[in-house]
């Protein structure tokens, strides 16, 4: 029972982690909380649903398609809504712009797809495996495996490739990186693209696993993922992963061993406690303010 609940928590948490990565990467480089990120996740779920049920592609193609589509959407949002403001106005204007984009995308999808909840067709024949000490479903294994794969891939990309190095440099000091000849605009675009692709993958997995896709699904998921990113230490990539998983497990354990009435209250209560003790988050670094 405990192990099964732990698995439930890790599955939920890994979807939070995939979204949280987008928040944390963008924040790490341009200190912007991209509130439209939850909507990218929602669009990913819809594009996947569209490809599977209307175009009839298989789920792997649909996932690739949704990830590519969301990459473009993410880059376009950055180009249209954030870049024109960068350097010219305060960071607060970009934040308001992000909220605007978020509302725009929600309403746009509500207009196109309607606000009713939709579900994925049975794309994967789910089965449960009895391991003796716990029962695991095939879907859980797939979601955990795929999330792990994506996150490992991300780590390799950031630490072993040129663009990854440029991202790390930009997150340390954007101006200095620019002076060193790094095309920071391209790095920022790329960051949005990668974050969006991960969110799209998360959206499809949630769509298949929880069977519910609707235009406002990004709002709560986005908030929780943002909380997960803060919990892990915003700006830190391993922090976002650990923060996401922790939040998912906390939520599930709260329901399992305390009460289901206070699901969110328990999770967010612990979040506040952690931040009171470690304001920089679990893996965040204390940065001395430059005066």
């Amino acid at each position: 029972m405990f192990l099964e609940q732990l698995l439930n928590g890790l599955t939920l948490g890994s979807t939070y982690a995939l979204i949280a990565l987008g928040y944390t990467m963008v924040y790490g480089i341009i200190q912007l909380i991209n509130f439209a990120h939850g909507e990218i996740y929602m669009i990913g779920a819809f594009v996947g649903l569209f490809m599977v049920s209307v175009l009839g592609t298989n789920i792997i193609v649909a996932m690739a398609g949704a990830m590519v589509f969301c990459m473009l959407v993410g880059m376009m949002i950055e180009r249209v809504a954030y870049r024109p403001l960068r350097g010219k106005s305060s960071r607060l204007s970009a934040l308001i712009s992000a909220i605007g984009v978020s509302i725009f995308l929600q309403t746009l999808l509500a207009l196109i797809a309607g606000i009713n909840t939709r579900s994925y067709p049975n794309v994967i024949n789910n089965r449960t495996f009895d391991l003796g000490f716990a029962e695991v479903s095939l879907l859980q294994i797939l979601i955990l495996g795929l999330s792990a794969l994506l996150m490992i891939g991300l780590q390799i990309m950031i630490h072993k490739t040129r663009i990854g190095k440029a991202m790390r440099a930009s997150s340390q000091d954007l101006d200095a990186s620019y002076l060193m000849g790094i095309n920071v605009n391209r790095v920022i675009s790329f960051t949005f693209a990668i974050g969006s692709a991960l969110a799209a993958a998360g959206g499809i997995m949630v769509g298949i696993y929880y069977n519910a896709v609707w235009p406002y699904m990004g709002m709560m998921a986005g908030l929780k993922a943002f909380a997960a990113a803060v919990l892990g230490g915003i700006g830190s990539i391993p922090g976002a992963m650990i923060g996401g998983l922790t939040l998912g497990v906390l939520e599930i354990m709260g329901v399992a061993y305390l009460t289901s009435s206070y699901k969110d209250a328990i999770a967010f209560g612990i979040l506040i406690l952690v931040l009171l003790i470690r304001p920089q988050g679990l893996l965040g670094q204390k940065v001395a303010k430059k005066v």
Binding site: G9, L12, N211, V255, K263
Partner: peptide, 12 residues
């Protein structure tokens, strides 16, 4: 309403 994850409740 509007939640989608009921795994913990059902496992219980």
């Amino acid at each position: 309403d509007k939640e989608t994850d009921f795994s913990a409740q059902i496992t219980k």
